[in-house]
Design a protein around this nucleic acid. Structure first.
Length: 504
RNA sequence: GCUCGCGUGGUGUAGUGGCCCAUCAUACUGGGUUUUCGAUCCGGCGACCCGGGUUCGAAUCCCGGCGCGAGCACCA
């Protein structure tokens, strides 16, 4: 070790003073970022509301904008009317969900479908300048040519013919699927996916927002490229499945003489309990009645998580901790839940919920000294929520959780040590006299029937019991003592209170 | 198959040539405390994909292999 030290003094003295490694927190600096001038963007397809997967884009982009003093453009990429048609209600919902997750409204909001005239203009420019052309090959025959690095017959058509074909496409004279506009690239590109890639295609299906006005619609790689340039986007952060998109768009930028933004990538994420986050898949399942709606508790949508009681802080912390690695990862839902517990715990009042309750008589022998029949327990053990839950005087009947009464000597939590004799709980003392196990219980007066709904993969499991009916309000999230967090879903005039399970 | 990307404890992450027999979190585990099986405190377990090379020195650079993932849509 000393020898190494000596050597270091000669060769690399700074190394000796280097700090012991520590964990970097937060996102790394933006490459080539200029303080205050970063423009990020988040570009979802409004074919449904946001999923947990989308929230990564919201969190990372808004956080980068925040720490670099920049702005975020929220752009709806709604240029597909056929395969993933837009859902009209999704626009407003996504805007609102963006704000909920990031804690801030998007700085700019635009819709691709509103900007069609601009895209068509650039497409025409591309054709006029000879780096785009109209191709009427079938997808299959083009693929064969492309894979052999061969030109397709349309590639040599002159500009005026291309412009004529373009006009026919735009006016709707050419049926769907019979022509496409391609961007010229070198056919020697090692990656076949990039060779003469398609930029616009014909779609005669009406668009839910702008109707039948347009017959030619840009594909993602073209629309996104043009719009990023127009909005002055400086940094694109996207999934690495879009790496080829970057390469295609860089070629287009070259044709137009523009500089491509800095691009960062994240890897694929799977949440073990849900698998992927397919909006179209969920949409289908909902329409088939498999789920009650986008906010069904079994779905990984933002509306579902939010309704169940997840906080935006937890979602933010979760993604920020994963950072921007390109590694493909699988994480358990538990890691998001752990974040949520720590963000909501201090504000969540405690309540008792006795599952599978067994009714029992309680008896106070005369011999108990200084007996106090009143019970009051804190709303929060650390006092972060002040106040007590006043149960009042205990009369003669209580509920106990079945599993707790395997032994005869137990302590009624927060009240007294008892001995169970012939199905009657005899009070020994309010004070704790020994280390007997603590039982979960409720006096009859403050109990009300309740059902805890626990969402599972294919069903919703229901656990019934009695809840501590003390200052309960619909919509509040409480921590059920010894069980975990739950939301009070419904307090009907008659019948059982309904609670929905959040997590431990 | 072709193209691209990624491989650090169970799971995630830090680390970009040197006191690195490797950071932090979570999970798991042992114990303390406790009027929750929560929270908290103390302890433990546990990792640089493999093989070569460059170098005084490699988790870090190079080459090869293996594994995993993605793209190869007239979807985004």
């Amino acid at each position: 070790m000393d020898a190494v030290r000596k050597l270091l003094e000669d060769t690399n003295p700074e190394a000796l003073h280097r700090e012991k490694q520590k964990k970097r927190t937060g996102l790394p600096e933006l490459p080539n970022g200029i303080e205050g001038e970063a423009t990020l963007r988040f570009a979802p397809n409004p074919n449904g509301p946001l999923t947990l997967g989308h929230s990564r884009g919201v969190v990372i982009n808004s956080e980068l904008a925040k720490i670099n003093g920049g702005r975020v453009v929220l752009r709806f990429d709604d240029t597909d009317t056929k395969v993933k048609p837009p859902e009209p209600t999704a626009y407003a919902q996504i805007e609102e969900e963006y704000e909920w997750i990031s804690g801030k409204k998007a700085d700019v909001v635009i819709r691709a479908s509103d900007r069609m005239p601009i895209y068509l203009e650039y497409a025409e420019k591309m054709i006029s300048e000879g780096f785009g052309y109209s191709c009427s090959c079938t997808a299959q025959s083009f693929k064969t040519l492309r894979d052999n690095k061969d030109e397709c017959p349309c590639r040599d058509n002159d500009v005026s013919l291309n412009l004529d074909l373009w006009k026919s496409m735009v006016s709707g004279k050419i049926p769907e699927g019979e022509a496409v506009i391609r961007v010229k690239t070198s056919l020697d590109l090692p990656n076949p996916a990039l060779r003469d890639w398609p930029a616009l295609r014909i779609q005669h299906t009406p668009h839910p927002m702008v109707g039948e006005k347009y017959k030619v619609w840009p594909l993602l790689d073209f629309q996104s490229a043009i719009e990023d340039h127009l909005q002055g986007v400086t940094h694109i952060v996207r999934g690495k499945d879009l790496m080829d998109s970057t390469r295609k768009q860089t070629i287009l930028y070259g044709h137009f003489g523009w500089d491509y933004p800095e691009t960062l990538y994240w890897g694929r994420v799977k949440v073990l309990e849900f698998g992927g986050f397919s909006t179209s898949g969920m949409r289908m399942d909902i329409s088939e009645g498999k789920y009650s709606g986008w906010d069904d508790p079994r779905l990984p949508t933002i509306s579902s998580l939010r309704k169940r009681g997840f906080s935006p802080e937890a979602i933010r912390e979760f993604w920020l901790e994963l950072g921007l690695t390109q590694k493909d990862i699988s994480i358990p839902m538990q890691s998001i839940e752990a974040k949520n517990s720590s963000t909501i715990d201090s504000g969540s009042e405690r309540r008792s919920f006795v599952r599978g309750p067994i009714e029992m008589k309680i008896k106070i022998p005369d011999a108990v000294e200084n007996y106090v029949a009143e019970v009051s327990v804190p709303k929060h053990p650390d006092g972060t929520v002040s106040g007590m839950r006043e149960w009042g005087a205990i009369s003669e009947r209580i509920y106990l959780e079945g599993d707790d009464i395997d032994v005869v000597d137990i302590r009624l939590k927060g009240f007294a040590d008892v001995k169970i004799v012939d199905g009657v709980a005899e009070v020994i003392s309010n004070e704790r006299t020994d280390r007997r196990t603590i039982a979960h219980w409720l006096p009859l007066e403050i109990s009300r029937e309740a059902v805890l709904e626990i969402p599972q993969m294919d069903e919703i499991r229901k656990v019934s019991g009695v809840i501590e009916d003390y200052e309960l309000v619909e919509g509040m999230v409480v921590q059920l003592e010894r069980i975990g967090f739950a939301k009070i879903k419904e307090i009907p005039n008659n019948g059982a209170i309904v609670m929905s399970w959040l997590h431990r």
